[in-house]
Design a protein around this nucleic acid. Sequence first.
DNA 1: ATAAATACCTACTAAAATAGTGTGTATTAG
DNA 2: CTAATACACACTATTTTAGTAGGTATTTAT
Lengths: 156, 156
Amino acid sequence: MCIRYLALIPPTPFIRGGAKKCMNFSTRTTYGLRAMIRLAGRKGPESLSLPNIAKAENISLGYLERLFSDLKKGGLVQSGKGVKGGYKLAKPAERIEVYEIVKSLEGKMSPFHCLDEGGKIYCKVSCRCGATKVLIKVQEAVKKTLKGIKLSDLVA
Amino acid sequence: MCIRYLALIPPTPFIRGGAKKCMNFSTRTTYGLRAMIRLAGRKGPESLSLPNIAKAENISLGYLERLFSDLKKGGLVQSGKGVKGGYKLAKPAERIEVYEIVKSLEGKMSPFHCLDEGGKIYCKVSCRCGATKVLIKVQEAVKKTLKGIKLSDLVA
DNA sequence: ATAAATACCTACTAAAATAGTGTGTATTAG
DNA sequence: CTAATACACACTATTTTAGTAGGTATTTAT
């Protein structure tokens, strides 16, 4: 998901055919969120299988499997193999921040760097150029927002 | 720029070689911001040429030209052709929000849509699924933040 | 007038990131 | 023993982003 769409375009009705780019999260995050919402929506203690979720959400199974690998590493879900296997939340939805979900799905990337006059690559340690100042403030705002939303808030 | 990096990674020192992806704005926005900061840093009324900026910021000239086409359409810069030509700010840096810059550079994209159970594509009008709720909140936070920063705040 | 420096325009190419597929192994309930 | 599941890895396809190449029009200085 690119910041531009987030910041620039108000939530307007969809216009079919008019959109080449979207202002969604990446499908990675979108899929992961929606799958987590499904898990959170379960009543009983039974697990929900990935083929089940993939079908319901129309997501490719292989892709979803990798997302859940990340969610599990992030400590957000528990898994069980076998016929009655599947996934369930590792803790109550009330105690899962959306921030944690996004972090698990997208967060193991790179440290912080930026362009600099010296060349295309890269920045000095602790660079604080103008673009960076902006970045830091936006970063803080997004983080705070994501931390303020619990998974349970998203269950219909 | 992807939201994940913004939200997830604190402004840590650069680690050379460790980064495959960055948490910057897209180079489009980064370049544009840096160029605008250069314009804002000028004292006199003379224009600054793109070859000048491109060299100083190590940006490809052709790419920069297209960015400035957008900035001009956005009403943020004025241009002059010819030997003494170039660009200057269309209004004082104190009155230019970073939001305007990002919007000019990245904002002419698509309306809002999201995935839905019905298929990969797309969302009903006024979709308010869980992922969308998150999106809207983040969107508001980012917009507010970008509006709160003036170009003049970024000049060293 | 001419030349040089600039804006400005369009099509094309390259690189990077994202999404999806294919194939396989291990584990578990029945 | 079988079927359904998690889990893993390599590969391909698609989309987005960045950069290049080549041109025209305008303006200033000579």
